[in-house]
Simulated assay, not measured.
Amino acid sequence: MIIVTGATGTLNGATVVDLLRRVPAAEVGVSVRNPDRARHLAARGVRVRQGSYDDPAALRHSFADADQVLLVSSSDLTADILTQHRTAIDAAVDAGARRILYTSSHRAGYDTPYPALAIHAATEAYLAASGVAWTALRNGFYGDLDAMLGPWQSSGVIAKPADGPFAWIDRRDAGQAAAAILTGDTQFDGPVELTPATPVTLDDFASAASELTGRSIERVVVDDEQWIAEELANGTPEAAARLTLSMLQATRTGYFAHVDPLLAQLLGREPRNVADQLSDHIAR
């Protein structure tokens, strides 16, 4: 059985949808914090059990009979995320999983210009020491486009600090790639990089937005500390604002410019590009 955590979210929710195209529903289970939100999966024959990274016993129950477990990285910024990840890995090992997969991040490492990557690196190290086969899905950047680009649809500008090239993917593509790895004949051991064929910049987002809307969407570079001050004035916690800034600063060094063809190979097509994602976003 394949057990997927975070299945009510966009990323691993996409994985489950694609898994159900590839294997019988009886071979898929989900571990979710709120089973009520997974009723649509239960209706399709998926096994739904309650599980939380803060509750080892519940996790072990939700992972029972697992051959493979896909762990989504924690998004709880108030928690000890690394401890949560270790709890989930231990539960998967105790449940007898043959392989553990983890949604890591592109260019994960300790000595990096983007501090958030250290948590992924530490989780990968714990996986490597678990004694179980493991795969780290090092996804390119993804997320809420409004948060990434700001209120460009009303302002006509993408006003952010200076950036450089970075790998931006659609979570649906990342989810589909995970399903392909979970059900494929090839065993992917250790880290795998899942990125688009070419990196992008915020200038690329502005160009795509201009073409899609028929308006001139301008990319405006804002001084780092000026941007921080504006974010704080808009109610963004300083830690969150500085984390975003550190990501943009890292792109300037070319740290996230590396790309890999594996994502397209797994999808059997080119990943959704910036224009595709913006078009979908505008249509919502």
Rank of each mutant, 00 (worst) to 15 (best):
Q84M: 11
S74H: 03
D80C: 01
A58S: 11
A58I: 01
S73N: 14
Q50W: 05
Q68H: 14
S52C: 09
D54I: 04
Q84W: 02
F63K: 00
G51V: 04
L70Y: 02
D67L: 08
D67Y: 05
Q84R: 12
L77W: 15
S52P: 00
S74W: 09
H61E: 15
S75R: 13
A57N: 11
G51N: 10
D76K: 12
A66F: 10
L71H: 03
T78L: 08
L71P: 07
I81M: 14
T78V: 09
D54S: 11
R60T: 10
T83R: 14
L71E: 01
R60P: 02
Y53N: 01
S75L: 11
D54T: 13
A66G: 03
I81H: 03
L59Q: 02
F63S: 05
A57G: 07
R60S: 00
L71A: 01
V69A: 07
Q68T: 14
L59N: 04
S62A: 12
D65Y: 01
R60Y: 03
A58Y: 00
S75I: 09
S73W: 05
L71T: 05
I81L: 14
F63A: 05
S73V: 02
T83A: 13
Q68P: 11
D76Q: 12
D80R: 03
S75W: 12
Q50N: 12
L71C: 02
A57P: 10
Q68K: 15
H61I: 15
D55W: 08
T83V: 11
T78G: 06
T83H: 11
A57R: 15
L71S: 03
A66M: 08
A64K: 03
D76L: 10
G51I: 02
S62F: 04
P56F: 01
